[in-house]
Nucleic acid binder design. Structure first.
Length: 457
RNA sequence: GCCGCUAUCGUCUAGGGGACUAGGACGCUGGCUUCUCAUGCCAGAAACCGGGGUUCGAAUCCCCGUAGCGGUACCA
């Protein structure tokens, strides 16, 4: 990309949730625009009049906002641009670059059967009202897409039909509309999915017929699911919304998505968004489709989680679980931060600090042995005298108990863990006790002892 | 069918004629650390789609296959 002031746009289809593929396209546009110091225009594609709804658009905007992908202009909707399209259409009809043709899909098929599969359909002009408008495509030569990622890609003109640019009622079709829109909006660089590559010659032909200069194009490889098929609902988290619900961090998602189809020459994996902006170059994007692998996202997310400042971490957890980021939650987060890879994993680790212990029969059976009651009693006695009731002093009184009973530490700590949390998995036992507080801890331990007495007599 | 794109460990990728005994990361396996679960650290297994050509030399360039994907709508 070069030139004074690049102008890019991203144009998600308002089909509901923002698909991961669409999100990555948005991210690449955003990175490229930021890297080049250009402007980013958000446009919602809604030429499909049937489907577009306010609600769907709101979902897209919500997802982009969560990803923290801001834009310089927009959202610009294509609604209301019908006049501009009509003008352009009239211009083409006037100049003879386009014509009305009453042929139906069947007619076109028949024409091809007669003229061979390699030939694009050529119709005959008619004045008949209600006939669709087709663009004249040359029989000779080729249309070349100068792609920033793939280099020049040549398409023989003869293989394209005189394609329909407007329906019988004069409403325009995508390849016409998008070309006109790009030109009118002054878009200099179009970064979009691979699935548009074969459409690009059509848009180039429209632009040329209208006398507009073509933007630069970059066609991104598609994103596939773990089975190699196009990413869809059945691949788990397929949308930005689902990623958010799964407890991923926007910064981690941005980092991971940037790496799907692009890498640095020195193999840097973990990058801040600032670094991403600085290093990202659209021409360095790879050509092959990538598979979305949630495992690596999880790992990356865990790294971001662990490196977060505690207050920020607490705020993120609070937002995810719908609680206030109070001092207690902060204390809980502090002892759990090392252990979770996603925001969703935090609550199960710390809920015992806010609610009664969960009833996990399996954990109880696995951990509680005949000598557990005796050990818990000794622990309770020790905890009663700890001053202050903090992690280090608690450790100082509990650790010697294991020696005294000549057992491995886990034999003592695990029953305590189950007694206070109900589960066999929690943050460090000393820290957990400290945050829980002496009174609650002792109360839960004594309850466990009673239950043990009932079990083991 | 026709037009086009793509092809390096399971996955994301580095590498663009000799530095390749093909590097890194996730995941996996084993070990160490350890109160659980994680983290952290160490080690290991694991790839150039196939066939031709060009060249002294090919993962890298060319051709042909094969496979996957996209387009081929009065969809976007």
């Amino acid at each position: 990309m070069n030139g004074a002031s690049p102008r890019l746009r991203f144009a998600p289809s308002p089909t509901g949730a923002l698909h991961i593929g669409g999100a990555r396209t948005a991210l690449y546009n955003w990175l490229a625009a930021r890297h080049e110091g250009g402007k980013l225009v958000l446009r919602i594609e809604d030429t499909d009049r049937e489907r577009s709804t306010e609600e769907n658009v709101a979902q897209i905007l919500d997802a982009l906002e969560w990803l923290e992908l801001d834009w310089d202009e927009g959202p610009i909707s294509q609604a209301g641009r019908a006049e501009r399209h009509a003008d352009a259409l009239a211009q083409l009809l006037e100049s003879g670059a386009a014509y009305r043709d009453s042929a139906t899909a069947k007619d076109v098929e028949a024409w091809k059967a007669e003229h061979g599969a390699g030939r694009g359909y050529r119709g005959t002009a008619t004045e008949e009202p209600g006939a669709a408008v087709r663009l004249r495509v040359p029989d000779e030569g080729e249309t070349v897409v100068e792609d920033l990622i793939r280099g020049p890609v040549a398409f023989p003109n003869a293989s394209y039909d005189d394609f329909v640019i407007a329906r019988g009622d004069d409403t325009v079709l995508y390849n016409f509309a998008v070309a006109v829109d790009d030109a009118e909006m002054g878009i200099t660089d179009v970064v979009r999915g691979d699935d548009h590559l074969s459409n690009t010659p059509k848009q180039l032909l429209v632009l040329e017929a209208l006398g507009f200069e073509a933007p630069r194009y970059a066609h991104l490889p598609l994103l596939h699911g773990p089975d190699g098929k196009k990413l869809s609902k059945r691949h788990g988290a397929a949308s930005v919304q689902e990623l958010r619900e799964s407890g991923y961090l926007p910064a981690a998602v941005r980092n991971y998505m940037a790496l799907l189809g692009w890498g640095t020459d020195d193999d840097t994996t973990l990058m801040s968004t600032e670094e991403l902006v600085r290093r990202f170059r659209i021409a360095d994007v790879g050509k092959a489709a990538a598979i979305f692998d949630e495992k690596k996202l999880r790992w990356l997310n865990g790294r971001f989680m662990r490196e977060m400042p505690l207050d920020q971490y607490t705020a993120a957890v609070a937002a995810h679980v719908g609680r206030d980021p109070d001092a207690r939650l902060r204390a809980a987060c502090e002892i759990a931060q090392e252990k979770a890879q996603t925001l969703a994993e935090v609550w199960p680790l710390i809920r015992f600090l806010f609610e009664e212990p969960v009833d996990d029969e399996k954990a109880w059976k696995k951990v509680m042995k005949e000598d557990s009651a005796e050990l818990l009693e000794a622990a309770a006695v020790a905890l009663e005298g700890v001053e202050p009731f903090e992690a280090a002093p608690i450790e100082a009184v509990l650790a010697p108990l294991a020696d005294r009973f000549e057992i491995k530490p886990g034999r003592l700590y695990q029953p305590i863990r189950v007694a206070i949390s109900g589960t066999s998995v929690s943050p460090g036992i000393f820290e957990s006790l400290a945050v829980l507080g002496r009174e609650t801890a002792l109360e839960r331990i004594s309850r466990a002892i009673s239950r043990l007495r009932g079990t083991f007599g």
